[in-house]
Nucleic acid binder design. Structure first.
Lengths: 159, 159
DNA sequence: CGGGCATGGTTGAGAGTTCAACCAGTACAC
DNA sequence: GTGTACTGGTTGAACTCTCAACCATGCCCG
C-alpha cells in the first residue's frame, strides 16, 4: 500500500469542473425526459437499444450488457415498461431460461415522441457550446476513459 | 417550433462515448466509496463541503446550492448523516427558520478515512489515462458546458 | 444417468431521490 | 397590527436502484 497520490490544485479544479458538468448535464437531460415524456433516462436508453435491434428484440442479458446495467435493474425496468405497454416479454424457445424483450408499437411511438426533445437538449447543452475541435477532443478523452475502465467497447454502433 | 437538428453520425459517436464514459466513471467511483467506506457519493460530497467551510458549518441552503442538490434531498441526507453521528444540526439564532449543518469530529474522521481511496480511484481512472494536454482540454470543455447550463460557477475553490 | 456447477433471470427488502404538500418564520404593505 | 406573499426547511409517498438470495434450466464429467 503506497502513499496516496493527491491531486494538485490544478487537477482538483479540472476534476470538480468535470464532475459538476457531467453530473449537471445528465441531470438536466434526465429531468427534461421525465418532464416532457414521463420516462426516466435509463428507460429511454432501453427503448433506444431495442429500437435499433433486429426485430426490435433483444435478450435480457444483451440489453443489460449493452449499457452497464445490472440484470436486476433491467428486470425491474422491463417489468415497469411492460406495465405501461411499451415492451413485451417473450420466452426463448431454444433456451427456456432466457427471455426476450420486444419493443411494442406503442413503445416505438413513445420513443419517437420523446426523441426530438431529447436530441434538442443534447445539441443545445453539449454540441452548441463546444467548438468542432473540442468535440473531437472530447471523443478522444472519452475513449481513453473507457479504455481505462476496462470497457471493451470503443464501439461505433453508428456507421 | 423549428425542426429537430439531429445528430450527425460523428456527433452521435462522441455523444455515446461521452455519456458512457462519464456514467461509467461516476458509477465506479460511487461503487468504490460505498464498498470501502459505506457512504454514497452524495454524502461524501456533503462531508467535503462541510469540511472546507469555516467552523465546518454551513446553512442547509448553502449546502444544497453548493452542488446541485435539492433542499429535499439534502434534508433527507442530513437526517441520515445525523443518525450515524457524522453531522449535527443546529438552529440559526438570528433566523429561526434556518438550520446549520455541522460536521462532527467523527464525521471528519470518516472523511479522512474515505478520502485516500477515493482520490486514488479518481487518479487512476481519470488522470492516469489522460495526457496533460487532454486534462487541460477537459477543463476547458467542462467549463464551457457549465456556462451552457447556466451554472454561475466556473469556480476555483482550491487555492 | 446423476450430481455438481455455471448461467439467465426474477424477487424482495433496504436505501436514496423526487415531487408535491406542508409548516414555520420573515418581510412588506396597507 | 393584520393580511399576504415569500423563504428555509421538513415530511411522506411513489419510484428507481442495489444487493443478496433465489429458482429454473442448461452443461459437463464421472
Amino acid at each position: 500500500m503506497s502513499e496516496t497520490r493527491w491531486l494538485t490544485a490544478c487537477e482538483q479544479e479540472v476534476w470538480r469542473a468535470f464532475i459538476t458538468a457531467a453530473d449537471g448535464l445528465t441531470d438536466q437531460l434526465a429531468r427534461q425526459l421525465q418532464r416532457d415524456s414521463g420516462m426516466p433516462y435509463t428507460y429511454y436508453e432501453i427503448l433506444v437499444a431495442l429500437s435499433e435491434a433486429p426485430e426490435r428484440t433483444l435478450r435480457m442479458s444483451e440489453l443489460a450488457g449493452a449499457r452497464g446495467s445490472s440484470r436486476s435493474r433491467l428486470s425491474h425496468a422491463v417489468a415497469r415498461l411492460e406495465e405501461v405497454g411499451w415492451v413485451r416479454r417473450r420466452t426463448c424457445p431454444t433456451d427456456k431460461r432466457g427471455s426476450f424483450a420486444v419493443l411494442t408499437d406503442k413503445g416505438y411511438s413513445a420513443l419517437e415522441a420523446a426523441a426530438p426533445g431529447h436530441v434538442t437538449e443534447v445539441r443545445e447543452k453539449l454540441f452548441d457550446v463546444l467548438t468542432p475541435q473540442q468535440v473531437e477532443q472530447l471523443g478522444e478523452i472519452s475513449r481513453a476513459i473507457l479504455r481505462g475502465l476496462g470497457a471493451p467497447t470503443p464501439h461505433c454502433p453508428v456507421e
